[in-house]
């Protein structure tokens, strides 16, 4: 279930986000310049719209799916710290605390 939602979410890492932003801007501006040049050259407004639309679709294809190049720098998190048990803090006791106690019991 979590793998399906992750595939739908399509997350990318921070470096990938910078890259995707850059590709979006360059791609769409390039599409606009090319569209104007082609429309002017062939004297066709229809061609201008087609070239610009095509450029936007290509940019979407390049940016929208989480391609591997956007996930080359995964964030490596620090290992979770073991926290001391505190009265009334049920969440800590449930997760890290109970596991470490179980480990201690096993070693005994």
């Amino acid at each position: 279930m979590s793998s399906i939602s992750a595939a739908l979410e399509g997350t990318i890492d921070f470096q990938g986000q910078v890259l995707a932003e850059k590709i979006t801007q360059i791609g769409i501006i390039l599409a606009a310049v090319l569209a104007f040049a082609v429309g002017q050259f062939f004297q066709s407004f229809e061609l201008l719209l087609l070239v610009f639309g095509g450029g936007v679709v290509i940019t979407l294809l390049a940016v929208l799916p989480p391609w591997p190049m956007y996930n080359r720098h995964p964030v490596s998190w620090l290992k979770p710290l073991v926290e001391q048990s505190q009265p009334g803090n049920a969440i800590h006791q449930l997760t890290s605390e109970s596991e470490s106690e179980a480990e201690k019991n096993n070693t005994k």
Partner: peptide, 9 residues
């Protein structure tokens, strides 16, 4: 730019 919807937007 984090997920699909944000990139589409």
């Amino acid at each position: 730019m984090y997920n699909h919807l944000q990139r589409l937007n």
